[in-house]
Structures are given as C-alpha cells and as structure tokens.
Design a protein around this nucleic acid. Structure first.
Lengths: 130, 130
DNA sequence: CAGATATATGAACATCTGTTCATATATTCA
DNA sequence: TGAATATATGAACAGATGTTCATATATCTG
C-alpha cells in the first residue's frame, strides 16, 4: 500500500517533468488562456505585421497615402533601385496592400488595404508621441 | 570638342541614372511628400512592427495580456521548447516589450509596452472582422 | 521599323531570424 | 552538501528576406 505522502510526492514529481499538462501556476495559466491566440491565427496576425516590418515598404506606404505614384517616381523619391521597388511592389500586391493601374508604359500604384493603412497610421502616431 | 548630340545623349543618360531630380509626375510626387517618412523613422517604425511579426511572439503577448507567467508555463502553454521561449523573451525584453520579476528560481514575465499592446489589439480586431 | 524607356523578373548573394542542442547558472530541498 | 530543476545562453543550422545585376517585356516615338 502506498502512503498518501508518497503519492503526493510522486504527483509533484510528475507535474514537474510533464509541464505540458501540469503547469506550475494553474490559476495564472487559466487566466492567460482567455486571450490566448492559437497557432493559425497567430501566424495570420504575424504576417499582417510583417507586411509593415520593412523600412522600404513603410516608406512606400507613406508615399502612397495621399496619391498614386509610378514605379520610377517611387524609386527616385526613396533613392532606391527601380528593381528593388518593383520587387517590393509585387510582394505588396500579392499581399493586397497595393493595386496598380496601367497607363501606357507607366504603371501607377495606390494603397489597397484600409486595415493595414490604419495600423500604419497608428504606428506613426506612437512614433511621434514616443 | 564634344558634339551637341553627344551632350544630349549624356544628359539623357544622366537623367536616367539620377531620377531623384527628374520625376515623371512632379505634382503627384509633391503630394506624396506630405506624408513621406524619412529613412531613419521608417527604420524605427519597421522595427516596431517587426516585434509583432512572429507567431511565437504574438502568442506570448496574447498569453501575457491578462496575467504574468513563468517561462516554463509559457513554453508548456504554447507547446514550444523552453529554450526557444527564453530566447524570444530575452529579445522581447531588449525591445522593452516585457519585463520580468524573479521569485526564487522562477521568473515571471509581464507586458511592458502599452503602445505595442495597443497595436497588437488593433491587429486582433482586424483579424476578427476580416 | 528601330531606338528609347518604364516595368517586371529570375538568379545569385549576403544578411537576418528563429529554433535546436548542449551546457552553464542559480535556487530549492532533502 | 548534493540532487533536482527553472532559466539563460552560446554555437550551429536552416530557412526567410531584401537587394543587385542582367535581361526580358511592353509601349511609345520618330
């Protein structure tokens, strides 16, 4: 017959080495689970923020806030290679951040995502007040 | 002596490689400059968003919204290695996203940046409504 | 049609990033 | 003091990312 004391000890031991099912602070963990994001949504959310996680893309977005612009002018304005801008714009188009309109051999880009634009502006506000 | 023809050719060449002063749509460029962000601020802003551009960090933040948690419990909760979590927490601490409090051999982490937390929640809202 | 030019694109390259593995440090407890 | 354990950390590695270079495509213009 195993004593209650021994059982408790074994249980404690088990908890320590099997953290996935036995947390150190069960109450806190339960509290944290209320706002916990699952893997899939975390990935989606991360991808959203990643769209804004590059200086060149941030500048492109800022340049397109008030007007449409062609690739060449964006490149010149930012002092970056036309190729680099074109690659970024393609990526941003795939992410539905921008859309384009062709006029002859010139392609004009405009912003195409209110959500991201909103996050962007929010970020700028923090930058200004920090 | 250089011919006028050669000079024109050189000038054209110069314009091509020095777009910065010769835009295709000067009016649009001027309009875009109102909201244009300079390189330094763009980098700062990008770095802010990059803090939220990883699924693991996003989940850590979501877990810490309602309570403090120790490293072990975060790792168990997310099903990620203790080492991976520790590395991320260190990075997040450097970025002032979280702070820690030590209790014996256990270290509790909490959120430490209202701005980022705000951006995070804004992102979640968009995720839910999109 | 031929030359000029605005944009797109693929390959190569360097850099950055996140995880893993092994191990160090620090603290508790018997 | 020694075993157990919570956390931290350095090195190595794989994968992602942004730029550059060369070149293709498409359109205008004379």
């Amino acid at each position: 017959m195993i004593s209650t004391e021994s059982l408790n000890k074994l249980e404690t031991e088990f908890k320590r080495t099997n953290c996935e099912e036995n947390f150190i602070n069960e109450d806190k963990v339960r509290e944290s689970e209320k706002a916990l994001i699952d893997g899939l949504n975390a990935t989606k959310l991360a991808r959203t923020f990643q769209a804004l996680a590059d200086p060149t893309r941030v500048r492109i977005i800022s340049a397109l806030i008030n007007t449409e612009l062609c690739v060449c002018d964006i490149a010149a304005l930012l002092g970056v290679t036309q190729s680099a801008i074109s690659h970024q714009l393609r990526q941003m188009k795939d992410l539905r951040l921008v859309k384009s309109r062709k006029e002859g051999r010139i392609v004009f880009y405009t912003l195409d995502d209110e959500h991201i634009c909103d996050l962007f502006k929010r970020g700028v506000e923090h930058l200004e007040h920090g």
